[in-house]
Design a protein around this nucleic acid. Structure first.
Lengths: 145, 145
DNA sequence: ATACTTGCAAATGATTTGCCAGTGT
DNA sequence: ACACTGGCAAATCATTTGCAAGTAT
């Protein structure tokens, strides 16, 4: 183990895992793909494709294509917080779900496990097992009520 | 009460109420506005702006403008069932919320009251009072699980 | 009379696609 | 070598906006 791998262990490990997954699926590790992965694995913040393209110095179309590929591999997810562009983030060990206030726009990410009770209640009524990872919970926060 | 008002009472009454509301707000009853209202009050089915424009024989831009106006007045709502265009419908006596299966696309509308338990569970975790009238519940239905 | 509305065309914002030159394996 | 990718420009899709002519009150 080198000195360089000592800081921010989790992130580096996950990126390594991701690269392995690409190889296992025969997906080429190109320059732009690698750059997009670097941005995604730098932290877990959800970002627009445009922001990711900017940070990775790749064309916006390539960013979208790469994000699609990575999403198919199950490494990435995108969420729609309102009417604007979608936000992409790598999928962490604990899958995050989202909630937004449609008045002030404040948004929070919560571990999927915390929403099991809500999911059960919804399943009882609709038969659907809900996920708030792609479309968030939308409503009014305490302050805006 | 005339003979004409006897069939489909509820619908006609509600349209009448709507027209009164427009008047009360000083919103003009133009030809295209009236045509859009006729389509919306014919039934409660959620429709795209394009479909409404087609049925009402008005320009698409006018349909959007009128739907916006009616939404501001609280007569209409639109829901996003997935990535396609939004679906507009009049608001009935009982507000409806929506749930979609992201695999088969099947969608159901449920009375807001039926989702109170789910809303409570969500409020406990996030502090947000959720509404599934604009963005639906998305997940996997029993058949697709 | 006049402020609000219309249809039409053009603009917008997000995302996708065609194409051909470039590149990972 | 060869299929897979990249950048770039143009296309799409849903929705919005500018504008000059028309209309409800």
């Amino acid at each position: 183990m080198t000195m360089a791998s000592q800081g921010r262990r989790v992130t580096v490990d996950r990126l390594t895992d991701a690269l392995e997954l690409l190889r296992a699926h025969g997906v080429r590790l190109t320059g732009s793909r690698r750059a997009v992965l670097d941005v995604l694995y730098a932290d877990a913040a959800p970002r627009t494709a445009e922001e990711i393209a900017g940070r990775a110095f790749v064309d916006l179309a390539s960013a979208y294509r790469n994000l699609d590929t990575l999403e198919e591999l199950g490494l990435v997810r995108h969420v729609h917080l309102g009417h604007g562009p979608g936000l992409y983030a790598r999928i962490g060990r604990n899958e995050l779900e989202h909630a937004v206030c449609d008045v002030c726009g404040e948004h929070q990410s919560v571990p999927a496990a915390d929403l099991e009770a809500a999911r059960d209640a919804i399943r009882r009524v609709t038969g659907i097992t809900a996920s708030f990872a792609h479309f968030p919970i939308v409503g009014r926060c305490g302050a805006c009520s």
